[in-house]
Amino acid sequence: MSAGAPPRLWPRLGLALLVTLAVVPFLPKWAAFLVTLALAKGLVALGLLLLMRTGLVSFGQGLYYGIGAYAAGMGASALELGDAVPLVLLGATAAGLVALLLGLLLARYRTIFFAMLSLAFSMIFYGLLVKTSALGSTDGFNVAARSTFGLPTTSPVGRFGVYGLGALVVFVGAASLDRYLRSHLGRLAPAIRDNELRVEYMGASVRNVVHLHLVLAAVLAGAGGALTALAVGHVDPETTYWTTSGEFVFVAILSGTGSVAAPFVGALLLELLRSFAYEHAPNTWQLVVGASMLAVILFLPEGLWSVFRRRRRAA
């Protein structure tokens, strides 16, 4: 009805889910793996999208990504959970609980102080993992789910179980976040970014909303970490290292915050770019990735997603 509000996204996201699932049998294994990784990392960037819309940039999302990955790994080995679904739920829950605790402190900080404090927490966790020999120190340990939705990984369909689960988690995560951002509570995100004082004077607690968004972003990152652990079959402290966190910020900026679909387009593009750059320029692939980032910042300051938006406006 209103001219300003964009149409609801979930039908199109649902279509994307069906397409993603339908192409599975035709994909070579390496491509399915690449897409799964992109979906998992896109989830972390989706959490960053929520934080960025609230006016915050976290350089420590690797913390929740790593917690999700290790929780899934420990769930499989210590708790003997064999199915991928409870492992992903476990990873998301563990990350959310940690954010609930750290948020008590983090929600008080903004700008560079918030960014550095979140980075510090992720590096403390990295340090702990490296020193913990029971968790394999710097080597980490192997993770294997026996089934997904009860389908054994050895069966023809179950082989792509983690891929399908990733697509489903992305659909639920993106559609829910899209709905949330259109709600009265979700609308406070840009309001807080624009003017915190006024939000308080309208009767809402900025700190509580920021705290909630930290937890939501962590849940998404935790699910992404668990999916990565299951797809790769291995976890190590690298998941929580600062370069990993930086990569998520990279994806979020590359994608733009215009739509909940953007982080997945950005993540997929980065994975493709990295694979091909690594193949054709093994010694200078970081240069290629960096140059692409520079190009996006210079020519598409609102991220890749603005290409879609401009086309729609022109139409």
């Binding site: 300003g4 709600s183 009265h184 509570l185 609308r187 406070l188 309001a191 939000v199 309208m202 009767g203 809402a204």
Partner: peptide, 12 residues
């Protein structure tokens, strides 16, 4: 949307 922020907080 500016007005809706305040009205939304009240309804919440």
């Amino acid at each position: 949307e500016n007005l809706l922020v305040g009205l939304g907080i009240v309804s919440l």
